[in-house]
């Protein structure tokens, strides 16, 4: 099982700060598409994905227990 952390507007859109899903074996790209289809999170194309607190590329494969974070465009500073 994988925990998926949500932040900023994604958190408000989903009404919660995390969700759980079975994502092991999926690529980051597949995960993004799957989340778009299965949740109310509309477009995730501009959303970066982090695995275990590091930015991932579309080709990276998710492993069991990896913590995933959806990172909308940031606005710190």
């Amino acid at each position: 099982m994988n925990k998926v952390l949500l932040f900023a507007y994604l958190q408000e859109a989903a009404g919660k700060d995390h969700l759980f899903m079975q994502a092991a074996g999926l690529s980051v790209k597949e995960l993004r598409n799957s989340l778009e289809n299965e949740t109310r999170l509309s477009s995730l194309q501009n959303v970066m994905i982090a695995i275990n607190e590091n930015y991932a590329t579309d080709e990276d494969i998710i492993e069991e227990n990896d913590v995933i974070a959806l990172i909308p465009p940031v606005s710190g500073g």
Binding site: F7, A8, Y9, E12, N46, A50, Y55, A69, I71, P72, P73, V74, S75, G76, G77
Partner: peptide, 28 residues
């Protein structure tokens, strides 16, 4: 670099509403 990659987000609160601000550099 902070504005590109550090996962921090700001929400602006106005008199008539509020909004999460994204992508200050206007590109990704």
């Amino acid at each position: 670099r902070i504005k590109q990659l550090v996962p921090i987000w700001k929400k602006e609160i106005w008199e008539d509403g509020e909004m999460w601000i994204g992508d200050q550099l206007e590109h990704n």
